[in-house]
Amino acid sequence: MSELIDALRAFEGRVIGPPTRALDAVNEPMIRHWCDAIDDRNPIYLDNDAAKANGHRGIVAPPTMLQAWSMRGLGGRTGATAQDDLLRLLDSHGFTSVVATNCDQEYMRYLEPGDRVTTTVTIEAVSDEKKTGLGVGHFVTTLQEYRDDAGEVVGTMRFRILKFAPQPKVEPRPQRPRPSITRDNAFWFEAAKQHQLLIQRCARCRQLRHPPGPMCPHCHSLEWDTVDASGRGAIYSFVVNHHPQVPAFDYPLVVAVIELEEGTRLVSNVIGIEAHDVEIGMPVVAEFVAFDDELTLPQFRPGLN
């Protein structure tokens, strides 16, 4: 790691390529296009008289055009500069993604038509490895200096990028299969979200029943309420699933028929125990697990309470 840091640090202070002289001098048509494009109506950029009235010798260029005068476009890239070497070095260490993070410009004077800008780019700083929201990476700051033909610095720009290792996309765990919710079973799943293990009870003959249904099979009443189960029960039967594997679950997966102490049975998972230690008759107790925003279910763990 420190080897990389040393190699990166060696780039600091290196000049990227030869100085680049602008292909065109600062000129009124390009100023007009710029102002039109960004809808800047400041008269000192467009009107000689107004510029003079503001103490200029004539029309001046918007300072933010600084970089535009000497930009080469795609055709000007050689791939052979120190910056290219630096980026390739970072790529080779897994920092393959890039994002621009800062751009600070400083202006010494207004540029006027006729000025011809020459740009020099220096790698100013390469940071240590930083943890960011995007991932781990290094910040690279370049300093661009813009000079006129007299050699005077007319402006500078510090441009910072982050070269980072893209974080492996963490696929959200697939959700457990959704229960089909009907008017007959919705109460049970709603209660489960509140960590209540309900058993449907006939409001007339008081018989408990599970899975729930609209009518009491004993007295045929359509009226029902619920009782809050203690959560204590015993394993009546169980299986250990190996194949096929549904992505929402960990395997081997223990699924059991639990006989609750109230007398009804239900199917659930047995957790907190190795699959080969599960036995019929083993006492278990319910706890609730919220698998996602929609689904909370009871799970059963060996124990008495």
Binding site: S180, D184, V255
Partner: peptide
């Protein structure tokens, strides 16, 4: 199995509500 069974609210699908969410499919 029935892990991809759409949870349309009818009685035959609701039957699986007691099993599929636990991986018994």
């Amino acid at each position: 199995g029935v892990q991809d069974r759409p949870p349309a609210p009818n009685t035959e699908n609701a039957h699986y509500a007691w099993y599929s969410p636990y991986g018994l499919v």
